[in-house]
Amino acid sequence: MGFSIPAGLEAELDALATRYPQKRSASLMFLHALQEHFGCVSNEAVEWTASKLGLQPINVLELVTFYPMFRQEKLGRTQVKVCRTLSCAMAGSAEIRSHFCTKLGLDAHRHGAQTTPDGKFTVEFVECLADCGNAPVVMVNDDLIGKCSAADCDRVLSKGG
């Protein structure tokens, strides 16, 4: 199955678990660390976390599926997050997402995050990015692009993943 945790990371996480009065409280920190290391939280990672913290895998899976920041599939190197909350939706965020999808050869009709086969880009809708005054807003990795236009999108794409 090819799931193995480097000894260093395991030791770090074991130490982390001791900092909480209850072991299960360390679940989120474990998942963050595992996602940082593997790029996503796979079912194997969920099972590993559960066995480390004395939980059942389903308890950990509940967390992973609840929080949008945890990913069950690997993301691309460039993550394009298009806001779809009210202001941005009214300012045309759907068209921006469609534009990205068309340019990257992704299916705009599919729900959820989509990654290009070469692993360079991930495009997805997200909820409010807290910059409603500049709608529509797109976040490319850690950079926020306000009043995003088709040209802005093309600029992001031209940089390559």
């Binding site: 939980l55 059942q56 389903i58 308890n59 899976l61 509940e62 599926t65 609840f66 949008p68």
Partner: peptide, 9 residues
């Protein structure tokens, strides 16, 4: 047997 849970949001 803690087998069931609620997934997604």
């Amino acid at each position: 047997d803690d087998a069931l849970g609620i997934v997604n949001r």
